[in-house]
Design a protein around this nucleic acid. Sequence first.
RNA 1: UCCUCGAUAGCUCAAUUGGUAGAGCGAGCGGCUGUUAACCGCUAGGUCGUAGGUUCGAGUCCUACUCGAGGAGCCA
Length: 504
Amino acid sequence: MADKIKTTISHLNNCVDHEVTLSGWLYNSRSSGKLVFLILRDGTGLCQCIVEKEKMPEDVFDAVKHLGQESSLRVTGLCRAEPRSPGGHEIAVTSVDIVCPTNDYPITPKEHGVDFLMKNRHLHFRSQRQWAIGKVRHTVIDAIRRFFNDNDFTLIDTPIFTTIAGEGEQTLFEVDYFGRPLHLAQTGQLYLESAAMAFGKVYCFGPTFRAEKSKTRRHLTEFWMVEPEVAYTDLPGLLELGENFVSFIVQKVLEDNRAELEMLGADIAHLENIKAPFYRLTYTEVADILTSDRTVKFMADQLAAFNARKTEIEKQLADIDAQTKAGGMKKWKQEKNARLTIELRSELSELETKIENNPKHAQLAADFKWGKDLGGSDETIISLMHDKPVFITHYPKKAKAFYMKTDRSNDKVVENFDLIAPAGFGEMIGGSVREDDYDYLVERVKEEGYEPESYDWYLDLRKYGSVPHGGFGLGVERTVAWITGEKHIRQCIPFPRMMDKVYI
RNA sequence: UCCUCGAUAGCUCAAUUGGUAGAGCGAGCGGCUGUUAACCGCUAGGUCGUAGGUUCGAGUCCUACUCGAGGAGCCA
């Protein structure tokens, strides 16, 4: 017999037929007389551990049998392949070291409400779903850094306390900086432009703060954004960079986290299809689509599909109700039905919201006038019509930020783009070519009602060796939500900060 | 800010439509040699969000407030 190996569950495939020690927490346990099945969690996976009464001192066996969920413990035993165990291996336990026995752990293996879980966020992390999302988030962030580092970009850290606005002043968090008002960064872009003139290709990656009064499943007030900025590029160059970047992230997650994606019920076939090139539409083309018969039909088809599903669910619920009333049902069947009922009801209420919103969204699309910014529902319609992300370019100048470059062939639009994620999650990337002409830029600053003096250093960049350049920002949490299929962005960041809610 | 829905055991939900508050999970005790959100039996656990009102009688009806969820606007 070899020496005991101290290892983790993720490395058990190298330890079959060896004596190993695992350190972790009790995820769940079952007992049956002379056997206890411990499901151990160690942060790398789950593993079933078998404790047999005959092979244990009686007091140890009793202690193990009564161990509560999330007790911390070390187990030692023989590792063997076992297809019935969650990770494919199990440990035939020879000794158990209870580190901290636990009672009354609040999060049970059953369903919980959102509010309860968020208030227990510090413990909620331990559950499988949150763990899987955390692993995917890690890969997304790793892929982001890898992509830029491997493509000759230099990381530039931009400040979090900022002196000038990038996106819009009404969404800035103001802080008292020793008596002087500064703002939390809502973008690193302006600083990054100066760095691009020094390094050529740069990116920044950090937290971003926006005081938007947005209470939706797509918004956080503190979120993570990565922003590349490239000197000597143009709009086609930026689109190519964007699609290669997003494809790389998705493929990396597919490579590293397939098991997590499966656990989360993500749409893997859809993700495998995410490869450059993506679709390209101009804002004007999108406006035409939104007001076309195609959209009318698309919305009507959607409504019909929603209603059909609604009827189906209602029938299922009525069936369950009738069965229950008829009586004589086995207990396990009753419980299964109760679970199903809760699921069906929640799907039903979601459907009802969609059915209620559909005509409004159809109307908004039909009434769309050239010049308006695209609304969330408009983006959703466009994204649902496509099986891959869609670039929308050349928005009206009036709807966009002052630093975006005016299209010299049509001065009503700017050379910008948004990338809309498929499946209705909305905008994932926003970017543009930057205005590089001094006079144009001063004019735009004035039009926005800002003082050119407060943009002195930014305007300098157009005086000293100005070049065509541009970049974009990608929201990490929206990307994670899209890839994992998670419905709410608050599950995609460890400790979410929302407009009206900061839990712990 | 506006609209809709909700608040009952530690958690997730019921309560025959105004008539003595229930179930599962979790907790405690017991049973079972292979379980998969295991199963079976027993036990404990409640000022029905708060304050008023209607009524012989309110978890259920009305008013106000508090808190939560979903949606709208704006955005990555």
